[in-house]
Design a protein around this nucleic acid. Sequence first.
DNA 1: TCGCAAAATAGAACATGTTTCACTTCTCCT
DNA 2: AGGAGAAGTGAAACATGTTCTATTTTGCGA
Lengths: 192, 192
Amino acid sequence: MDDRAKRIVETAVELAERDGFQAVRLRDVAASAQVALGTVYKRFASKEEILIAALEQESEKLVTRLGKKAVPGDSSEERVRAVFVAITRGFVRRPNLAKATVRSLASGDPNITERVASFHALITAVVMSAIRGEAVVAQTEWGGDTDLRERQIASILQNVWFASFVGWAGGLHDVSRVLEDVDMAAALLFEE
Amino acid sequence: MDDRAKRIVETAVELAERDGFQAVRLRDVAASAQVALGTVYKRFASKEEILIAALEQESEKLVTRLGKKAVPGDSSEERVRAVFVAITRGFVRRPNLAKATVRSLASGDPNITERVASFHALITAVVMSAIRGEAVVAQTEWGGDTDLRERQIASILQNVWFASFVGWAGGLHDVSRVLEDVDMAAALLFEE
DNA sequence: TCGCAAAATAGAACATGTTTCACTTCTCCT
DNA sequence: AGGAGAAGTGAAACATGTTCTATTTTGCGA
């Protein structure tokens, strides 16, 4: 990302955090980033794409933070819980930005399909790491020998988290519910 | 819903089904429904609200259809699978409409929060019925004596389905994946 | 250094969701 | 029947995402 693109994303983040998705007016973004509107569109295909870029930055920071030290917890369930608390808190720290990015995630804009897929994959990978008690790393390659069940559980938990997080973003319930949903799923999936 | 509102929703459905969310241009909707633009806004607060109204119609039909005969299957898992196949197929029959409504569901528009919550509750209720092997009914009241675990499982499955369905709507994967995700979750949640 | 191609800019233009307004039609009460 | 208020209408206006254009600036290879 070149300088201008960085300024654009940075500005969008500020506006989104201050007043949410609709406050990210591209004219304002361009003006604040000291860039022409055409330049914004040279870099990003749509408003959603800018916010997804912001999400990617956030995700990267999140993974970096998580990678600093091993996920705490003596069991998969505990570590999963810890990791979802961290993820959720990380996003909810800037609630309006989080809601704006969720909206972009769910917009269905074909321009960002791959990016959305990457995001889901990233969360799933982090959860995978937590289940196995390994260090959280951004880019993991799991071979076919990987335990299938672990991958399935990670995928399910990721889905549960995402659905509930979207619910939070839409005002259906508050953050505690998101964590409860994930905890509940983890409890049922890890018991036996 | 009065006559005009019905015409509006009906028209929106047609346009959405033909060419998706962006094709639902409210001027066109108004014209096709033989109604003034102001009248559209007298009935619905936003474009999203119109599509949510369409979703409610669809959901109602779906529940009616499901209620016709008992959900087939000898175990909770089988019935859950059957019910999700029916729900998913029901929506995917009109893919563009489904994608448009998903987009509205995830828009975060505060005007529709309750409606979105109702939709989630409806799906969960249907799944609950399937788990218990009871007839599917639109409006069920479960007392506190209801098995907690069943409610939790229903809620988890609903979340998994929703997240995966949103993924389908966003082009992340195709419908079969949605059913695989749900099946996988059901398999893990019902095993023991 | 010069000149050109790529990138950036300012600003207009366009599309469409949403709001507003002045006017007309309808409904219903007396 | 007559009239008041509600509802509907057509059209304009406004906001903002997106596109387009003419002009200027920038960076770079000869």
